[in-house]
């Protein structure tokens, strides 16, 4: 196409737009039905509906209808644990470097969906949503950096009274059940990232009040090279699902960050005692503050090996 042709074409289309047909197109636009998104669960890398077929209405902070979210049942929780267990071998066996790269990739994908998250967070009543999304991306990058450093910080070579090397190194605990806080994105990222960066896999119960950003986050995870099953996200009633996860014999640790109800927390702690799960129940969380390594070390266990020096 030559340069001289361009202006005339542009002019022609501008004239066309100013005429009647343009108005007709506009009125057609106004009757176009919105494409409503179906929010489902995220289990084993797939997006299934709840096995129970149930859903619940999610409203904006002003009380307007936003969407129907799946209401997960205990069987969905069981399936999620199975998926997390299946993923554990590969994920915990991946090199820390590789896990860090994948978390960084999640941050990249989150960044590219910034506008969508800002819109969803604003609807659910989050103030300064833009800053929150930025903080969430930064938090992911921050935890990604820890992947190949945490062992150097928490591991040690121990002086022993014999001709041996004695080395302690942190190992992932296994499948971690997480009750996410009522902080749709930053809080969610802040509980998931430290669990998985060290090689654990997790089943997350999203915020009951504002579950939609968590499923959008699942779409980010599904397109970020994160192996299926490493993160599984359930939406629904915390009170209904959490005790089942706390009692599940194939769950190795429990993060009760998002459990506000004191009685429910005690019920979960009691159930968790049955197979000696690690239970993490922090009090008072300021998600904008520097998180420190507390959440990383909460789901690590120390392996100590003796090794003859030889010679």
């Amino acid at each position: 196409m030559s340069k001289t042709e361009r202006p005339s074409r542009a002019r022609a289309s501008a004239e066309l737009a100013a005429e009647g047909p343009g108005e007709r197109a506009q009125s057609r636009d106004s009757v176009r039905l919105a494409v409503r998104k179906t929010y489902k669960l995220y289990i084993g890398g797939a997006f299934p509906r709840s096995e129970s077929g149930r859903s619940y209405v999610v409203t904006s902070s002003k009380g307007d209808f936003l969407a129907n979210a799946s209401k997960a049942s205990r069987k969905d929780a069981r399936d999620a644990v199975t998926a997390a267990r299946k993923a554990f071998g590969g994920w915990s066996g991946a090199t820390p470097y590789n896990r860090g790269q994948i978390l960084y990739r999640v941050a990249e994908m989150l960044e590219s969906r910034r506008a969508q998250f800002v819109a969803e967070l604003s609807e659910s009543g989050t103030k300064k949503a833009g800053e929150v999304v930025d903080a969430a991306v930064d938090r992911l990058v921050w935890y990604a950096g820890w992947a190949d450093k945490i062992a150097a910080v928490t591991g040690s070579t121990n002086p022993v009274a014999g001709p041996y090397f004695n080395i302690s190194s942190p190992e992932p605990t296994g499948v971690v059940a997480v009750v996410a806080p009522d902080e749709p994105l930053l809080g969610l990222i802040s509980v998931i990232a430290p669990v998985i960066v060290t090689g654990n896999t997790c089943v997350v119960i999203a915020s009951e009040r504002a579950p939609l950003p968590s499923i959008t986050l699942a779409e980010v995870l599904a397109t970020s090279d994160l192996p299926a099953g490493v993160v599984n996200i359930l939406t629904g009633s915390v009170k209904e699902i959490a005790p089942w996860l706390a009692a599940h014999m194939d769950v190795n640790a429990l993060d009760l960050t998002g459990v506000g109800d004191e009685n429910l927390a005690i019920t979960c702690e009691e159930a968790a005692a049955e197979n000696l799960k690690r239970v993490f129940r922090p009090t008072g969380a300021d998600w904008s503050a520097d998180p420190g390594t507390r959440r990383l070390t909460a789901f690590l266990e120390t392996k100590t090996v003796w090794h003859p020096t030889g010679a």
Binding site: V81, W244, A247, D250, A271, E274
Partner: peptide, 9 residues
């Protein structure tokens, strides 16, 4: 027992 069992056992 009323709780989900795990293959570890």
């Amino acid at each position: 027992t009323g709780r989900y069992a795990g293959p570890d056992y």
